[in-house]
Design a protein around this nucleic acid. Structure first.
Length: 728
DNA sequence: AGCACGCCGACT
DNA sequence: GTCGGCGTGCTC
């Protein structure tokens, strides 16, 4: 008797698996990771085998048999990883396992099918038939001539196009033994985006070589090692990643390369592809379902051994994993913002520890916890040997009541660059025309009906938009409260800054890059035009600061650098430091040298002052001291429990119930705050509980038990819950 | 989750 | 008298 322990793929928290099923012989090779269609009460569900046993606690007559086994499943290693994520982030087994399954398995549309293609090749008789007096129709002859010139079987579709022979013709030739037809599985491959990536192997400089040697040594003898690659922008971290991946492949290992966001995957992919060829696969959610499935399948079969992608790629089915690269390890996007709120960096650590892989986390501005905890490899200089540019911090408090977002000095610096025919980048981390609109008569404002946030003026679209839920309404002509027609557009976003800059630097062109300015796919095109232009200004949101290389940029400007500091968030400092440092690293890489201007209302803030001096060690030391004094991570652990519901009372009641349960289970040294209201989002009222504890394990365990008990008691009905361990 | 069973109020 | 409200239990 073989029993499969199965977790049904359902979204509820109230269901506690696994459930036992009797495995009949006819299902064939079913093991951990197999996906089964199972009878479950009156329903038919998909379920994942999480274990196989010889006996069950239940008598055999109470056990049901699965209806069928699906073709694709996950490896036992990834099943363990998925269950670990479910447990660690207090989610459900189903949601953890879904991450490990072939893409689309749990989707309503069901798993994506493989693409099959009919291919034909000429047999020996077929090649011979052209020469002898076999009677052949003109289409038949054309097909055989075409096939005779091929060394590989040709797709039927292509034969039709090139020789005019359709499927019927080919079938007839097949019956005469002149052609062999075969159905093969073909992989749908993501379209490559050509970006000017250096294809040729460059000689590593001494620092790059030392770093690579250290990583290779770890590959050879220190499974589970974690290394921090700290290199200023432009110091050639990617070359080190490439060399490390090559070394891993030479040793028969596979590799995963995590990049912070989908927009950056084409660049990363291109560089890995040109060096490592077809052994590189790309996985992310913006691929077409068929492409995504096929890239996943290429990895599972071992045809591809390196996976490039954003956080979800940490679950890529790479067997014999030897290396995980985490590029820009400080980026917040490694954290998933919905349940399970996993941190890809933590999942990578877990996976590396289990599989014996080596982690290389790279950044110009590492997180304080990485700086503190990891062995550091340093790339202190840019590959071009140029020094980092000088940074001027401009105090906007001395600049009151000025029309426009630019400091006098910033404006003249930009005008000078344009006049000299140079290039500059301007970062303004705010989309739209104006962040909010208000009535000059009564002071009234416009809020999103679904979220508790101000609507943003988008003048081109003549709309007010919510940047949280996407709600849009027509730009009002008058105040609905008092009827006044004098409305004030407060503040400046990228849309408004663009024409102001254009006026300032004319006739030099201005290019705008934000998620409004171009469709996602056209971002590359905007960047390419900026790159190709002899002179001009690029203005945009933080995407202008990331991942792009423009050697001829001589001036970089950050407007409102302290915007993030105004949020009550202990990571605001860290984010501001990273943003300013990143942009500073983008300037003056070419021969012209460079300059950086930072406009801020908080010129003395440590994050800004240290970034201006390019002083990462100094900043991290200060920040760690502050964290220690305040008892923040890494000197404590935080966990946030968020409850949300369309019904305010339900959110509050669920939060209060959970507070009592968590409080009763939490160790004495831990503190519990809340429920505190968070701003309404997408029509959902939200409450949060915050746990601060010296040890992460016991705190997470207490939360997990409390959540499971509350779900079992149906106290969470009508409210959604997600637990954010180590929030960003 | 999804479904059945079961125990109380207002309707053809 | 029954239709249906949703509270409770169960699914291998």
């Amino acid at each position: 008797m073989t029993i499969a322990k199965v977790e049904p793929l359902v979204t509820t928290r109230a269901l506690r698996g696994p459930f036992d099923y009797l495995l009949p012989e006819r299902l064939g090779d079913v093991g951990i990771g197999s996906v089964l269609r199972i009878p479950f009460g009156r329903q038919r569900l998909l379920g994942v085998v999480v274990d196989v046993a010889e006996s069950s606690e239940l008598p055999p007559e109470r056990l049901a048999e699965p209806l069928e086994a699906l073709e694709a499943g996950a490896s036992a290693e990834l099943v363990r990883l998925g269950l670990w994520v479910a447990s660690e982030y207090c989610s459900t087994a189903a949601r953890g396992l879904e991450l490990a399954l072939p893409p689309g398995t749990a989707a309503a549309a069901g798993p994506v099918a493989a693409r099959r293609e009919l291919r034909a090749e000429a047999t020996a008789a077929g090649s011979g038939a052209l020469g002898d007096d076999s009677r052949l129709g003109s289409r038949q002859r054309a097909a055989l001539e075409l096939l005779g010139a091929q060394s590989e079987p040709l797709a039927a579709e292509e034969i039709k196009q090139r020789a005019g022979a359709d499927l019927q013709t080919l079938r007839r030739l097949e019956r005469r033994g002149l052609v062999r037809l075969r159905e093969v599985e073909v992989s749908r491959r993501p379209r490559e985006v050509a970006v000017g990536a250096p294809a040729e192997r460059v000689e590593l400089n001494p620092a790059q070589r030392r770093a690579t040697e250290r990583i290779v040594a770890a590959l050879d003898s220190e499974p589970g090692a974690e290394l921090l690659l700290w290199g200023v922008t432009g110091s050639g971290k990617t070359e080190v990643y490439l060399a490390a991946a090559e070394a891993a492949l030479e040793r028969g290992f596979g590799a995963i390369v995590l990049v912070p966001e989908i927009a950056l995957t084409p660049q990363a992919l291109a560089r890995f592809r040109t060096r490592l060829g077809d052994r590189v696969a790309l996985l992310h959610s913006a691929l077409r379902p068929g492409e995504r499935r096929d890239e996943w399948e290429r990895l599972r079969r071992g045809e591809a051994r390196v996976c490039v992608g954003p956080r979800s790629a940490v679950f890529a089915p790479v067997a014999g994993l030897g290396l995980i690269v985490i590029d820009e390890e400080h980026e917040g996007s490694y954290k998933q913002e919905s349940d399970p709120r996993y941190d890809a960096r933590e999942v990578a650590r877990r996976r590396a520890a289990e599989s014996g892989a080596v982690i290389v986390a790279g950044s110009a501005t590492p997180r304080p916890e990485s700086w503190l905890g990891l062995e550091r490899l340093e790339l202190p200089e840019r590959v071009d040997g140029r020094p980092l540019p000088p940074v001027d911090v401009l105090d906007m408090r001395e600049h009151p009541g000025q029309a426009g977002p630019l400091h006098r000095e910033t404006a003249s610096a930009l005008a000078d660059v344009a006049a000299a025919g140079g290039k500059a980048i301007v970062l303004l981390n705010r989309r739209g025309w104006a962040p909010f609109l208000s009535c000059r008569e009564c002071g009234g404002g416009w809020k999103c009906p679904e979220c508790d946030v101000s609507l943003v003026v988008h003048r081109g679209a003549q709309q007010l938009r919510c940047h949280h839920c996407g709600h849009a309404e027509a730009l009002p002509q008058a105040c609905p409260g008092c009827g006044s027609v004098t409305l004030a557009q407060q503040g400046t976003g990228t849309e408004r800054a663009e024409p102001e800059l254009a006026k300032l630097v004319a006739p030099a062109p201005v290019f705008r890059l934000d998620s409004d300015s171009a469709g996602r796919r056209d971002h590359g095109e905007v960047l390419a035009r900026f790159e190709a232009a002899p002179a001009g200004i690029l203005i945009g949101t933080q995407m202008v600061a990331r991942g792009h290389d423009f050697p001829d940029v001589v001036l970089s400007v950050v407007l409102d650098a302290d915007a993030a500091l105004r949020f009550p968030d202990f990571r605001a400092e860290e984010r501001t430091f990273a943003l300013v440092s990143q942009l500073a690293g983008r300037s003056g890489r070419g021969t012209a040298g460079g300059r950086v201007i930072v406009q801020t209302l908080a010129p003395r803030a440590p994050a800004i002052a240290h970034a201006a001096r390019h002083d990462t060690p100094g900043y991290v030391a200060d920040e760690l001291e502050r964290r220690r004094a305040l008892g923040y991570p890494p000197f404590s652990h935080l966990a946030r429990i968020e409850l949300s519901s369309a019904d305010q009372g339900a959110a509050q009641a669920a939060a209060e119930g959970l507070r009592d349960r968590v409080g009763a289970l939490l160790p004495g040294e831990a503190t519990l705050l809340g429920p505190a209201p968070r701003f309404r989002l997408r029509g959902r009222h939200r409450r949060q509980l915050l746990v601060k504890a010296p040890e992460r394990g016991p705190a997470v365990r207490a939360i997990r038990e409390a959540v499971y008990a509350a779900a079992a008691a149906r106290e969470l009905r009508g409210a959604a819950l997600s637990v954010d361990v180590d929030p960003q």
